[in-house]
Amino acid sequence: MDLDRKFLLLLSGSPLVAFALHAGLSRALRRFAPQSAYQGVAGLAVLLGYPALLLLAWGFVFSRVRFETPPIAALVYGAFVYSGLAFAYVQVYNMSETSRRIHILTRLSKGPASAAEFSEKYSPERQLAIRLERLVSLGQIRLEDGRYALASKPLWLIARAMDGWARVLGYPSRAPKGA
């Protein structure tokens, strides 16, 4: 197999690197710090995947080529592909953590249930409590004197961008007036 194909094959499998790191970190965290935010662990695993993938690419591909200049284009290309695939992996993981649809399907995989059971489980109070706790633990919002305020802007900016994109696609805006 030529080196180009080997490089592409390695990149195709790159989400497995993120997954392996995530599994290791997640299991270690569950054992030593069970109260930690698990979504942050997925992000950390993806970040650690960059040097891990670079080492793999160096060992299997780049060390076998004599470059006159550093292979910047190959590295940038590899970083883009890995970023895209790893981002998709994190989103799949987030769906398994936070998506009501996945949670409903997971519950139904154990047997039939009534719609009322889900309405009860997903009561507004419970939904609010779980999400507020998650956002506080991720440092996105802070609780001061019984009131929640933004502590960091990146996720809020994503929320605004998503709302804007929803409108481009023809969905109504969900943002409160003034947001």
Binding site: T98, R131, L135, I141, R147, R160, P176
Partner: peptide, 11 residues
């Protein structure tokens, strides 16, 4: 979650 951030941001 994103909706809550929009509401909190608007406050």
């Amino acid at each position: 979650t994103l909706w809550m951030l929009l509401v909190i941001g608007a406050s």
